[in-house]
């Protein structure tokens, strides 16, 4: 579907006024919606477990090590890191693409963000491993 053929009611998923035509969501949008739902669940768990049930709102070092000694916690926090990195970078990519960059700049952004995403997750895994090795 070309730009001109698209319904004029607005971007899929953000239309405020319903259009007679039903726009089909793109894959990029669907992935952003799925990761968004996952982030919503995981960030809620993260905020409650790390801040709202913790005395003073922040764990000291010994408590962080004890918290991460639970394998389920590590799995959930790593999942959160992966999903939030995906959602954040794809969202920033969409914002940058709105500046009307050329196709070369856009593919450069996609490649750079892919590398950045992998680097962020690798950093998170390294950090988790470093903290748990204090145990």
């Amino acid at each position: 579907m070309t730009q001109a053929e698209r319904p004029s009611a607005g971007p899929i998923g953000t239309t405020w006024t319903p259009s007679n035509e039903t726009p089909r969501p793109t894959w990029g949008w669907i992935l952003q919606a799925i990761s968004g739902v996952l982030v919503l669940v995981l960030v809620t768990l993260h905020m409650i477990a790390n801040h709202f049930v913790v005395s003073g709102g922040l764990r000291d070092f010994a408590d962080v090590v004890a918290y991460l000694s639970n394998p389920l916690v590590v799995v959930l926090e790593v999942c959160f890191l992966v999903v939030v990195t995906w959602h954040g970078l794809l969202g920033l990519r969409a914002v940058l693409f709105d500046f009307g960059l050329g196709p070369r700049a856009e593919s450069a952004i996609t490649r750079a963000f892919s590398v950045l995403g992998v680097a962020i997750v690798a950093y998170g895994l390294w950090l988790t491993w470093t903290i748990t090795s204090y145990h």
């Binding site: 579907m1 730009q3 698209r6 004029s8 009611a9 607005g10 971007p11 899929i12 998923g13 953000t14 239309t15 405020w16 006024t17 969501p25 793109t26 894959w27 990029g28 949008w29 990519r93 969409a94 914002v95 693409f97 709105d98 500046f99 009307g100």
Partner: peptide, 29 residues
């Protein structure tokens, strides 16, 4: 993948999304 990011579609002024006539920050902010 035939992907077209949703923000690049062309909403009219007064609806959601970036303006079709004004690119960049002025288009959506």
């Amino acid at each position: 993948m035939n992907e077209q990011p949703l923000e690049r579609t062309t909403p009219e002024r007064g609806t959601e999304g970036a303006s079709p006539r004004r690119r960049g920050l002025a288009g959506w902010a």
